[in-house]
Amino acid sequence: MQEALNDLEGSEILSREQAALLRRIYGRELFSVHWELRLVLYGGILILTTGLGLLVAKHFASIGHLTLIAAIALGCVGCFAYCLRRGGGFSPESLTTPDAAYDYVLLLGCLLLGTLQGYLELRYQVLAQYWNWWLLASALIYLLCAHYFDNRLVLSLALSTLGAWLGVKTSQLGAGLWDGTLRDSALFFGALVIAAGAIQTRLGWKRHFLPVHLHLGVNVLLSALVAGVGSRAGGSAYLAGLLLTGSGSAFYALRERSFAFLLYAVLYGMSASQPSCSISVTGAVKGSYSTFWSARRRC
């Protein structure tokens, strides 16, 4: 490596400063803590919002309703004001993040908004038995924020909230856990999420959002199909759907060189197999990993 850097510097392909920087990186004098910092920020946001929720639940009477509402609202407005000031506005293409805290301040603002909505409904019962519409309103607001501020974290939150709203609406019809009605809703939601991501990509609009759509949509689809394989009515249809979806996930994994989608296909396929199957999940994952990287080397 040192010889290659010397040759590049001698050929004036690299400047002296660039070569010196690369030597420091190669000598492990410099290393990146980018993902560690992002993980710390993400964990801090979750801990902060969890603590706020516990504070609201246990001490709202002593603190005062209006004080709590004003504090949460001010925090939410402050987060969105920061993002509006620092952000570059809407663009169909990927935007450069202004700073390391930008994405997480936006996520905090969205979570504070959800906390405010939940507290208003808990205290004043604004929508009473129709409280689930708060979930739909939250999902739509999160979708707007995700696309305007170009944030995949908030997009994940938006799609998850939309799925929660659909699940609550289905459960109000008397559907039990993973019964036919709820499975059908999950299949519809998973297909809708994947289709929305594919259409956006086709139109050239926020193409980098596609992996978020696919990860969530494929997991929801496969979960619903696995739950339906053992049902008395339509078990064979669910099995056919599972094979088709799993094959599509594996094909996408090989085409895009994304091991996660191959892992989904293997794990959900194994979970739907008979308990007497002699192949362990661990062995299957190891075998699929070897197959994936062999195919990648051939590409």
Rank of each mutant, 00 (worst) to 15 (best):
Q2H: 10
E3N: 13
E3F: 11
N6W: 05
D7V: 10
E9Y: 05
E9L: 03
E9I: 01
G10Q: 15
S11Q: 14
E12V: 10
E12W: 08
E12A: 07
R16Y: 08
A19G: 05
L21M: 04
L22D: 01
H34N: 02
W35M: 02
W35H: 08
L46Y: 10
L48D: 01
T50S: 09
G51E: 06
V56H: 02
F60R: 10
I63T: 11
G64V: 12
H65A: 02
L66S: 03
L66K: 02
T67G: 03
I69M: 08
A70Y: 04
A71Q: 04
A71W: 07
A73Y: 14
G75E: 04
C76W: 15
C76R: 08
C76H: 05
C76A: 12
C79H: 07
F80P: 01
Y82R: 06
C83G: 01
R85T: 11
R85S: 03
G87T: 10
G88S: 14
F90A: 07
F90N: 00
S91H: 04
E93Q: 15
E93P: 05
E93G: 12
T96C: 00
T96P: 01
T96Y: 04
T97L: 04
T97C: 10
Y102S: 03
V105W: 14
L106V: 06
L106P: 07
L108Q: 04
L111V: 04
L113K: 02
L116R: 05
Q117F: 14
Q117S: 12
G118W: 15
E121V: 13
V126P: 09
Y130M: 03
N132H: 13
W133A: 06
S138V: 03
A139Y: 04
A146H: 07
H147S: 11
Y148R: 04
D150H: 15
V154N: 02
V154R: 08
L155P: 07
L155F: 06
A158P: 12
S160H: 13
A164F: 14
L166R: 05
G167V: 11
V168E: 09
K169L: 14
S171A: 13
Q172L: 11
Q172S: 04
T181C: 00
T181R: 12
A186T: 02
L187R: 15
F188K: 08
F189E: 01
A191V: 14
V193L: 09
A195Y: 12
A196Q: 13
G197V: 14
I199N: 00
I199Y: 09
Q200C: 10
Q200E: 13
L203I: 11
L203R: 12
F209P: 03
F209I: 05
V218F: 14
L222D: 00
S223K: 02
A227V: 09
A227I: 07
G228V: 02
G228I: 01
A233W: 14
G235K: 06
G235H: 03
A237G: 00
L239S: 00
A240L: 14
L244E: 06
T245K: 02
G246L: 09
G248E: 11
R255T: 11
R255D: 04
F259E: 01
Y264Q: 03
A265C: 09
M270C: 05
A272G: 06
A272F: 10
I279R: 12
S280L: 05
S280F: 06
S280I: 11
V281Q: 13
G283C: 06
V285W: 09
K286H: 08
S288P: 13
S290P: 00
S290N: 05
F292I: 09
R297V: 09
C299E: 13
